[in-house]
Design a protein around this nucleic acid. Sequence first.
DNA 1: TGCCCCCTGCAG
DNA 2: CTGCAGGGGGCA
Length: 285
Amino acid sequence: MPELPEVETIVNDLQLELTGRRLVELLKADKTITGPAGAWRRLKGEKILRIWRRGKQIIIDLSGGRHIVIHLKMTGQLIWLPVNRRRLIVGGHPIIGVGETLPNKFTRVIWRLTGGTLFFNDVRKFGWWRLLSTAELLTSHNLLGDEPLTKQFSGSVLAARLAKKSRSAIKSALLDQTKVAGIGNIYADEALFLSKIKPTRLVGAISQAEWNDLAKNIKRVLRLSIKHRGTSFSDYRDAAGQVGNFINKLQVYGRTQAPCRVCQAPVKKMKLGGRGTHWCEICQK
DNA sequence: TGCCCCCTGCAG
DNA sequence: CTGCAGGGGGCA
């Protein structure tokens, strides 16, 4: 589900909506919440200082000094419902389901805050919430790779990061969160298409010019998707429950057999490292 | 590095 | 009914 652009969209919205609010009561929690439930309940009264992102993880900084870390995995949704709004309808458009209210049968965690309620829905239950100290947060984040939207991220940085994976397929290497954090199955396929590189190409067979191009296209596709509020293939919704609009802009992902937007040849699909992989065999070499 | 698995729903 | 799904941990 959510990759960097989708997580970024949620985080940007929540940063505006939730900063300064206080945790009032943990109304529902299941195994999604790791560690002792008592520790979570005792967070009541703490203030939300900031909401940000590292890779695909969402971090909520609390006034007590600890951090709620959330991973949406494949089907997680983090939705904020202000107290004055009861249904997920914005601008007349129903979102998750037609005129649906929250909680629904997939709601795993509910936090009542000042001014509204934060819901975590997750069909497949892969997502998790962790409560970490600052030291623990730093340790876990040190295991993650570079942030692709930083100024420092470049072709040479990318090449250096992936140097030890010279015998891996480039697509699989891009999905390794310990090298670059935030790229998932959609944007790996999209960035490789834009760079005219076949997903199965070995890392060791990529030229410096191609690394530069690839780094540039990774940034380009992630930024463009953020601008369109992410890709809603099935479950992804933003913090207001709305779909993202980038799906129409996808070049290859989910377009199996559809004409390549550049050369009209049918988009191909294969399995690579267990993941569905889309590419154009004419454009990508 | 590559499979299996976590879990549920839905398309074919 | 089988296979597949924006992720990624654990195991050989």
